[in-house]
Every structure is written in C-alpha cells, then in structure tokens.
C-alpha cells in the first residue's frame, strides 16, 4: 500500500537523486515508485522536476556550474526514462509539440539540450534537429510537423544573426507559430527587434522559463482535476 509517508520518502529520494546527480538512485527510486503504485506524473513533477528546480537555484547562486547541471540532467533522464511510459496523457488543450535546434554555424548544443529536457519532462513531442542546422530546415520541419513552437539556439554572436532569418521565414509561412530564442549573446532587445515570442538569456533562464511553463501546465492540470475547467 502506498502510504503518505512512503510517497513522501520516494519523492524526496527522486528529488535528491537529481540534485546529487545520482543516476542509480534515480532509477531505483523511479522503479520503486511505479512498484508501489505511485502516479508517474506525480513522481516526475514532484520528485524529479522539483529536484531540477533546486538545481536551477544552485546554478543561479553559482554553487553549481554547467558540469554539475549536465550530471543532474543525466540523473533526471535516468528516472524519466523509467517513468515516462507510464505517464497518463493529459488533455489540456495544449498540443505541445516543439521543433528545437542550434542554428547553422554553431556547434554548441548544451543550452539547447537543457531546454529540450524540460520539454521532454513536460510531455511535449520534441523534434530535435541537433546542432549546426541549416536555416531552411527549421521552417521545413515546422511545416512538416505542424509544431506549435520553434526554439532556436545560438551560443555565439557570430551565428545568432541566422536566427533572424529563420524568424522572418517562419512568420511568412506560418504567422501563428510561437518562436523562442536563446543563447549567451541573445538579449531581450534582440528578441523584440527580431520578433521572437520568447527569449531565454542563458541556461539558468532557459531552465527557469521552461520550469515556469511546466508549473503553469501543472496548475492547469490541478485545476482540471479539481473540475475548475469546463471542457
């Protein structure tokens, strides 16, 4: 039987496994959570994601740096891989599919992968084009998959200008699509000037934005469960 106490203990273990970048514990705790009948969604959001939230805080306060962040992400994925097949799909009226990639000329993909991770967690369908992606490919993939969101990443000033081209092209072909840009050289100013809908300053911010997005999804879900939303 799943007692409140056991549930709390497992969530705590999942959370700490992510914070302490302990892949083995993440796997064990995820499996145990399923075995005792815990909801996979609960284990993901209140265990793994809650750990990642703390990691975001540690990163922001410069106790953690990118290597730690990457190891925490590995731990999160270790747990997520086990839990994901058991997730009950939520119908929130959000279709949730995203095209993501690093623009041509840029081979940096760490920031992009962290953002991707949060979309994975949120249950989005993610079309990851990888790095050094020819600009036309973003438009092509968006049209093909009819994705709601396109995320463009660039780590260098020298490549970020390619994002403007993609934004212009996407707007021409599909004015409704939402576009997020991110990466070290990008600024709010640039995002506005180029007509992006969202912007993530760096890994910290990308993580925060993605977590905010997930939090609002969570709230929607809770409200749906509480019967507050008529559907």
């Amino acid at each position: 039987m799943l007692t409140e106490e056991k549930k709390k203990e497992l969530l705590e273990r999942l959370k700490n496994a992510v914070i302490q970048y302990d892949e083995d514990t993440a796997k064990e705790a995820a499996q145990e959570a399923l075995d005792v009948g815990m909801e996979a969604n609960d284990a993901i959001f209140n265990g793994l994601v809650s750990g990642m939230q703390e990691v975001g805080r540690l990163f922001e306060s410069q106790e953690y740096f990118v290597p730690e962040l990457l190891m925490c992400a590995d731990a999160l994925y270790a747990g997520l891989d086990i839990l994901k097949p058991h997730v009950k799909q939520l119908d929130l009226g959000v279709k949730g599919s995203v095209v993501i990639g690093t623009v041509e000329g840029d081979v940096h993909d760490i920031g992009k992968n962290i953002v991707k991770m949060m979309f994975d967690v949120a249950g989005f369908k993610v079309y990851d084009l990888g790095r050094d992606v020819p600009l036309d490919k973003f438009v092509e993939e968006q049209m093909k998959t009819d994705s709601d969101l396109v995320c463009l990443s660039a780590m260098m000033t020298t490549t970020m200008t390619g994002m403007k081209k993609v934004i212009d092209d996407l707007r021409k072909k599909n004015p409704k699509v939402k576009i997020m840009i991110g990466g070290a050289p990008v600024s709010q100013d640039i995002a506005e000037k180029w007509g992006a809908d969202g912007y993530a300053k760096d890994a910290t911010n990308a993580l925060k934005d993605a977590i905010n997005m997930i939090s609002s999804l969570k709230k929607l879900k809770e409200e749906a469960e509480a019967g507050k939303i008529d559907r």
């Binding site: 000329g105 840029d106 081979v107 050094d132 020298t158």
Partner: peptide, 13 residues
C-alpha cells in the same frame, strides 16, 4: 567546415 556554399557570414566549425 568552412561553409563554402553559404552566402552568410559563417565561421568555420
């Protein structure tokens, strides 16, 4: 890759 095909300013990677 020097992006020889490209008219854009792309630095080799």
């Amino acid at each position: 890759n020097v992006y020889a095909h490209s008219e854009d300013l792309l630095y080799p990677t």
